[in-house]
Write a protein that binds this DNA or RNA. Structure first.
Lengths: 192, 192
DNA sequence: CATCCTTGTTGAACATCCTTGACAGTATGA
DNA sequence: TCATACTGTCAAGGATGTTCAACAAGGATG
């Protein structure tokens, strides 16, 4: 259950910065009463108000809630999560067995000409980055599409929708690393 | 930048799941009007309402806002944009600026012939792994010494004492990743 | 064509959040 | 002791979010 203790969390953040309710309120452009009520969990603030307040700390909204969510959320690593690698066309080789206590996975990827991770932009928790070792590849992240060549690199939060496509005529080789994927919805193992 | 386009983002998520406003409203325990108004950005929802709705998708609040907030982060790095870290002898190029919030650091490393991380075995918290892209290198981990060649890879817990040495006569190129980021903050950095 | 279902939108009523302004408690210093 | 300045809390009312109910547009069925 929820137990989204917004008030307590806000109070902690404010106090850790040695700010009074009034001082924070002033910076945020709201009144001290607002902060008082929120901290007591007497109200559930509107997103716009909460954003004003967090901007003044400053703390991003996702950071604010990440702390809350990690407290009651368990993160599981499925044993078979990374076993499905490569689907005939694409070749993803995992460096080392994927073990529950590993904090990242390292891949040696080979994209033949025309290889494509698919039209459906994928989104999952975590971060990923890589260096183009040979060939070139077109990468789309959050609507931004670029063609990277040998020596180029990328790094992004995997929650942004992304897609990989080899539009050249030679094989593209990438060494990439991903920080832990969260559990994927449904059966298909998400990757990339 | 504000531009927190909560409505648009919600609409995207709802539609990607093939849900109508009414269906989502039903699952979330709010009314269809609420969702309509939010999606049109006619209102800034309260956190409690937004949480109900996101729970029904389901999407965590931090995920929801992550998409908005991460939109401005740099994703693509041209070869000459990598941050040089080398100390004269060794050359390490970091993918992306030193951002404190990243969960790993990605490196494009160049070891000239004779390069050596030193006799003192290094130990630090975290994990590291890499793929040898060109040349060869001698790696010692916890007393076990191996020479790896192009296409070989390694992965170990960084708490084990380790050392890298290029005993060949050509440059060795490695793409590696470390968790947690060992190059996160300024100052001298231990690595490898 | 009519009928029925679903879709998203909107005005008015209601519920909740937010501000105004006042209050009590504590600490510092004259 | 009194004055001043700070802290957090709270009631009343204005501002904003949410619901209820009606509406129009689009598809599907007969």
């Amino acid at each position: 259950m929820s137990g989204f203790n917004v008030g307590t969390r806000l109070k902690q953040l404010r106090q850790s910065r040695d700010l009074s309710q009034r001082e924070l309120a002033k910076r945020a452009g709201v009144t001290n009463s607002t902060i008082s009520l929120i901290e007591q969990n007497s109200v559930s603030p509107s997103v716009s108000s909460l954003k004003k307040i967090l901007d003044a700390l400053p703390v991003s909204i996702s950071e604010f809630f990440a702390g809350e969510e990690l407290a009651n959320e368990q993160v599981f690593y499925r044993a078979d999560e990374l076993t499905e690698i490569g689907d005939g066309n694409l070749s993803w080789r995992l460096v080392g067995a994927r073990r529950p206590n590993r904090s990242m996975s390292l891949l040696y990827e080979h994209y033949p000409p025309g290889a494509d991770t698919g039209e459906d932009m994928l989104e999952h928790a975590g971060e990923e980055g890589g260096v183009i070792v040979a060939g070139s590849i077109e990468i789309s992240v959050n609507g931004d599409t670029q063609v990277l060549h040998q020596g180029d690199a990328y790094y992004f939060d995997s929650r942004l929708p992304h897609r990989f496509r080899n539009v050249g005529d030679e094989e593209c080789v990438i060494v990439s690393a991903n920080t832990p994927p969260s559990f994927a919805e449904g059966g298909t193992t998400q990757h990339h």
